[in-house]
Write a protein that binds this DNA or RNA. Structure first.
Lengths: 354, 354
DNA sequence: AGGAAAATTGCAAACGTTTGCATAAAATAG
DNA sequence: CTATTTTATGCAAACGTTTGCAATTTTCCT
C-alpha cells in the first residue's frame, strides 16, 4: 500500500484544508494554535502515518538534534561505560548520539572530526587518541560555536571545556598506598606521555616517592600502549635481572592482570612477594585471583558530567562568551588482595626474594 | 573572523563565476565536469573552508548516509564488540552509525524505532530486548523498504534478514560436554523464554540430555534475566536442599561467575565437586580462578556479517524482492578449568558430596 | 569551412520543514 | 454596533543540496 509515499505535513494540510504552517505549528505545540486544531492535526498525522523528517527540519533551522561522541574504542570498559551514560542521558533530552571510534589512530580522529562536522552535529564530546597532541582538527567546532567538550583523555594546552579524572591524585594515591603497604621499589607502567593523563599520573607517582624519601629511578618507569602484549614484554625486562621490584603500579587493569600472570609463572606470590595495583577498576579486577587493587574513576559520574556539560553549552546563546572550565571527577582507591598487608608469619617468601 | 558564515557551494560558485550545479558536480567528481574545473573548485572549497552540509544533501536525495543500531546495552561485552565492528566497517564505506541502547526496555525500543525512523536512517540493525516478542514497531522500516537486519537476539516469526549465533548447537554442545565430563545432574540457568535464543539453547540442553539418557527435570532449569543478583538467588534455591547438582550450564558468564563464587562460599570445589560452563566467552572467563569454560560466539565475525548484510541490502534497488535469509554464525566451545576432567586421585571431594 | 557529435556548463525545480510577517477571525470594550 | 485588542491562521521565503533537461562550447569529420 504505502509505496513511494512518505507522508509529509503538506499531505496533512491538504487533507484538513489547513495551511502548512498551521500544521507545522500544531505538531510542535505552538501556543498560537487552538487546542481544537492541534488535536485535529495530530489525529490526522497519526492516521496518515506521518513521521517528521528530521533532515528537513534540521536543514531549516540548522540543528540536527544529534551530538557526536568520539572515543578511542567503544568495546573497552571505561569508554563504553561513559558512552552508555552519555547516550542515555542525551536521549532523555531528545538528542541522538553518533558514537564514533578513533581506534586510537590520529588519522582516523582527524577524519572523524571532518565528517562529524559535515553532519552538523549540535555538539561534540571527545576522548582523544593516545597520540593526539595537536588538537587543531577540532578548531572548526570552536570557530563555528559548536559546543565542544573533552573528557578523560583531554588536551593540555587547548582552550575547551574539559571533564577529567583526578589523575595526579590517582597516581599519588596508588603510589603512597604501595609505600604504606611496605613497598620500597615500585615499578610504574605508564601509558605514553603524549597523553596528558599519564603525565599527571607519573607526576603523582614521583611526588609520592619524594614525599616518602624513596629515590625515583628512571629505569623503573615504562611508557607504552597499555596492552597485554606490551605488558608481557615489560615484564621480561623487569624480571630479567635482580633486584626485582616489590610493587607495581600499572596504569590500567589489563596491564595489572598481565603482570599478575607473569608473576604466577615466576612463582612470585602476590601480594606476599610483590604487590600490584591497577587503574580504572575494570570488572576483571574483582574477578581475578588475587583480586586486584585499583582506582575507581567513576565512569558513570564522568558520563553524567559530560552529558550535563553538553546540554548546558547547547543552551547557551551562541553569542555567550565561551567559558572553558575544567571539571575534575574524583577517584577512589579500591583496596583488594593484590596489595593487601601480609600477615607477619607469611613474610618468609618476601625475605627470600630480597 | 568566521562568524555566522557557513560557506556553501553557492559561495564557491560566486567566487569562481560558475554555476551552483557545476560546483556541486565538481565536488562529487561527476564525469561530465572537466578536470580543470574540478581542481579549481576543490581548491576554492579548501580555501574557503567549505564543509558539505549532510542534511541538505540528505534532504535532497533522501539518504542520510547514517545507519541505526539498536542494542540492549553498549557496555556489555558481547554487543559492545559487535557494535565496534559494525561501526568500523560501515565507516569505511562512508556511513555513520547511530548507536542506541534500549536498556532492555521494550518501551524504549519502540520509541527508538520511531525516532530513528524520523532521522531517515538508510538502514537499521537491531538486537532486541529480552522481552520483545511483538516486533511490529519495526514495520515502518519494512513498509518503506529500509533495510532491516536483526542479529543475536532475533525475532522468531517476523520476516526479516537475520544474523544469529547457533544457539541450539551451543546449548547442545555445552550440555554434552558436561555429560562427557561425567556430570549426571545438570542445572541450566537460562534467560527468559521470551527471547528466542534461550529457547534454542534450552532445546539443545534437552536434546543432549535425551541423547545421553539423562532425564530432563523441569526443576533443574531457571528462567531469569541473567544478572549477578538473579544468579545468587537461583543459587540459594539450588543449594537449599540435596542432592546438589554436579554441573551447571549458565547462559552467560556473569551468571557462571556468580555461581562460582557461591560454590566457593559453600566450599564446593570447581571442577572437582561441580563443573560450570558459561556462555559468550566474556574476557572475565579466562581471568577467573578457575578459568571458566565458555562458548565463543565470535562477536567480531557476527559484526562483520551484520555490516556486510546492511551494505548488501542498501545496494539492492528499492524494487528488488526482499530476501529474508538467515545467517548462522558458528560457535566454539572453549574448554577451561571449570569443567576440566578431574584426576582420579582427586575425586574424594566429589564422592563425599554425592 | 560547415556541420554533427561530444564534452561541458547552466537553469530551475525539488526535497520537507520552520518562521517572520501579514491577514483574518473572534472576543472584548466603549 | 463600531473600534480595538486578542487569538488563530495563512503566505512565502529560506535552509543547502542534487539532478533532469536545456544550452552552450569544444572537438572531430569530411
Amino acid at each position: 500500500m504505502s509505496k513511494r509515499t512518505e507522508k509529509t505535513i503538506v499531505d496533512i494540510a491538504e487533507e484538513l484544508k489547513l495551511s502548512i504552517s498551521t500544521v507545522s505549528r500544531a505538531l510542535n505545540n505552538h501556543p498560537n494554535i487552538s487546542v481544537k486544531t492541534k488535536e485535529k492535526v495530530k489525529k490526522m498525522a497519526n492516521k496518515l502515518g506521518y513521521r517528521p523528517n528530521a533532515m528537513a527540519a534540521g536543514l531549516r533551522n540548522s540543528r540536527s538534534r544529534t551530538i557526536g561522541l568520539v572515543v578511542p574504542r567503544i568495546s573497552m570498559f571505561f569508554p563504553a561505560t561513559i558512552s552508555t551514560v552519555i547516550q542515555n542521558k542525551l536521549y532523555e533530552h531528545g538528542y541522538h548520539v553518533l558514537i564514533c571510534q578513533s581506534n586510537d589512530s590520529l588519522e582516523q580522529e582527524i577524519a572523524l572530526a571532518e565528517t562529524l562536522y559535515s553532519t552538523r552535529i549540535d555538539a561534540l564530546a571527545v576522548s582523544s587518541t593516545l597520540y593526539t597532541t595537536d588538537f587543531s582538527h577540532f578548531d572548526i567546532f570552536k570557530d563555528n560555536n559548536i559546543p565542544l567538550v573533552f573528557f578523560d583523555r583531554v588536551p593540555k594546552d587547548y582552550q575547551a571545556k574539559v571533564v577529567r579524572g583526578d589523575d595526579y591524585l590517582g597516581g599519588y594515591t596508588v603510589t603512597e598506598h604501595l609505600i604504606e603497604k611496605g613497598c620500597k621499589d615500585i615499578v610504574h607502567i605508564s601509558g605514553p606521555l603524549t597523553c596528558s593523563l599519564y603525565v599527571d599520573r607519573v607526576a603523582g607517582y614521583k611526588n609520592a616517592l619524594r614525599k616518602h624519601k624513596i629515590p625515583f629511578k628512571k629505569s623503573r618507569v615504562f611508557y607504552q600502549e597499555l596492552t597485554k602484549e606490551n605488558a608481557q614484554q615489560a615484564c621480561e625486562k623487569i624480571f630479567a635481572r635482580q633486584p626485582w621490584p616489590d610493587g607495581v603500579f600499572a596504569a590500567n587493569d589489563t596491564t595489572a592482570i598481565a603482570i599478575l600472570e607473569h608473576c604466577r609463572k615466576l612463582n612470585l606470590r602476590v601480594p606476599e612477594d610483590i604487590k600490584i595495583v591497577g587503574y580504572s577498576n575494570d570488572p576483571r579486577a574483582e574477578i581475578s585471583t588475587p583480586t586486584i587493587t585499583s582506582i575507581d574513576q567513576f565512569p558513570a559520574l564522568m558520563g553524567e558530567r559530560v552529558a550535563a556539560a553538553l546540554l548546558d553549552l547547547m543552551q547557551q546563546p551562541a553569542s555567550a562568551p565561551q567559558r572553558y572550565s575544567e571539571e575534575i571527577v574524583p577517584i577512589e582507591l579500591i583496596e583488594r588482595a593484590s596489595s593487601a598487608t601480609v600477615a607477619a608469619t607469611k613474610t618468609r617468601g618476601k625475605k627470600k626474594v630480597k
